[in-house]
């Protein structure tokens, strides 16, 4: 389940992380056009990014984040080759994580 694309690049001591997650991000307010029934909510609630085992960013998301969410942030203190771990968990308890090297 490779649902995450991530890129982390360090420049002048600041690492920019960009990540794209494949997820439906269903709000629970949309109706199925064929049956007229509400499509149950299904969205990512928490995204965590760790550098050397320390959380640098925790995103708490509601259903109002767009489908296939994009996320970017910056932090200091990482160097080339360091490992970053990004993981998400959704409201159904599904989850995924990925590790990448800072370039």
């Amino acid at each position: 389940m490779a649902s995450i694309k991530i890129r982390a690049k360090v420049s002048d001591g600041v690492t920019t992380v960009k990540a794209l997650v494949k997820h439906p991000m269903e709000t629970g307010q949309r109706k199925d056009k064929k049956t007229g029934k509400l499509i149950p909510a299904h969205f990512i609630q928490e995204v965590t990014c760790e550098h050397n085992g320390k959380a640098v960013m925790t995103a708490l998301w509601g259903p109002a984040i767009s489908k296939n969410p994009y996320l970017s942030f910056k932090f200091k203190g990482a160097s080339k080759g360091d490992t970053l771990k990004l993981s998400w968990v959704d409201n159904r308890g599904e989850k995924d994580s990925v590790e990448t090297q800072v370039s």
Partner: peptide
Amino acid sequence: ASFVLGPTTE
């Protein structure tokens, strides 16, 4: 969304 940032995060 609410992003909780670490001490080294910009």
